[in-house]
Amino acid sequence: MLIINGLSNVIFKVEKLLAGILLSTMFLSLFLGVVYRYYFNSPLFWSDEVAIFSLIWLSFIGGSMTIKTKRSAVVSVFVDNLGEKSKRVVISLSYFIVLFFTVYFFYITMKWIVSPSILVQRSSAMQLPMIIPYFSVVAGFFAMMIHSLALFVNSLRNDVT
């Protein structure tokens, strides 16, 4: 077992847990939003914002999960028609491209998140520091980087998917 696979699996477990929490939060905040507005006639000013921030976190965390589970939308017609050997090469190459991109993007997002103007921003309804939803992009690309490194390394070793 490679260390990178272990790390990728641990991250995936955390992601599953987070996904459950985020999806439930999104559902509850919109549902309570309706209940409070209609039955108690006192609309919750924070419900839409909580739901949208949950969606954003869900998208980046979930986006990384789709890499791990190979569920992302792809065009595979070309690769499917290749011979066994060239197929393995192309798939390794594809994982490498994704890995390279996620590393590069992780670097860009790190530069972005530490820029001074990030810290002064607050959300419009809750006055929440915007770094809380923004950080989802960084976290998502970090996890994507680990997952795609694991996939790339595995594709070099033996199994082709």
């Binding site: 986006g63 789709t66 890499i67 992302s72 939308a73 792809v74 065009v75 595979s76 070309f78 690769v79 192309v90 798939i91 190459l93 594809s94 491209i97 994704v98 991109f101």
Partner: peptide, 10 residues
Amino acid sequence: LLLLKVPIAF
């Protein structure tokens, strides 16, 4: 990139 089976989002 599409032909190389890179996820379309990427």
